[in-house]
Amino acid sequence: MKASAAGVGLGPGATGVVSPGSMKPTKVSGAKHEERWAYALLVMPAVLVYWAVMAFPAFFSVGLSLTNYNGGPLWSSMNPVKFIGLSNYIKMLRDPFFSVSLKNNMLIILVSVFGQIPLGFILAYVLSRRLVGLRDFFQSMIYVPTVISTIVVGILWQSIFSPYGPITEIMQQLNPMWENTLFINPRTAMIPVLIVILWMYTGTYLIIFLANLQKIDPEVIEAAKIDGATEWQALRYVILPALSGVVVTSAILAISGSLQSFSLIFAMTAGNPARRTSVLSLYMYDAAFRGAPDYGLANAISTFIVALSLVLIALLKFVENRAGGREE
């Protein structure tokens, strides 16, 4: 907050002091002066809002994660907030619900990266190569789930998988003895969530891949075909290399999106049974708002979420560089 205000404020302030003193031609320094004022004026509102509600809270969160703050005024003499080092992180790592949440988050990341992306690519490829007509129709329809509110999606699918929903009905038609324990059994409770995540976001990757496939010059593919390349070879040696950057971008989107699955799970299972479908963001929410507030722990979790996504993205970039290096 301070740094930015100083950085911008310095510009006009400094000129204001310098220009009357120095006897330079007023036109030049006047223009410079105006330029700095205009810059500050144009940038300031965005910087102020963004730093107040995003940048500062992000740092504040890291700070709080190192304290034992659990409500009330931050600076009080009665109950001062104490710096407790990494205790919250140790508490988090020892908490069994942390590993459950982390495991579920990893499952979601796996389904996103190795489910949504390949599926989205295959659908986009089939549509882009004009292997079928009605491209716009299919693209539009498959994207529909993404525009529906996550909360609606969560409740809808909770109903679909519930004992009174269509899945139970169909399964019981096939096998009257079948009992729906999907959401009660801790071992299976994540399966519906993963299916919904696949259902909801595959359309996003379909759109991203389709847009980028259309940028590839069709003549390049035609040329490969004339040289005798099969459909598969054209895909392997022409199309996939051209899309490697898009794949990485999609994977970054999938990873950061996967760590944000709060609303869907909140609406679908609320983490039940016995918090077995919890994810890190839900675990954080529970630490702060369920029972006695433990803001230190909650902020340790949110800091961990940010760190985890940065590490995963760095890892991805590393793999990309190595893979890219080998291809050269």
Binding site: V53, M54, P57, A58, L64, M284, Y295, I305, V306, S309
Partner: peptide
């Protein structure tokens, strides 16, 4: 790269 989760509690 910052999600709403990262700032929810401080906010």
């Amino acid at each position: 790269l910052l999600s709403a989760e990262a700032v929810l509690i401080p906010l």
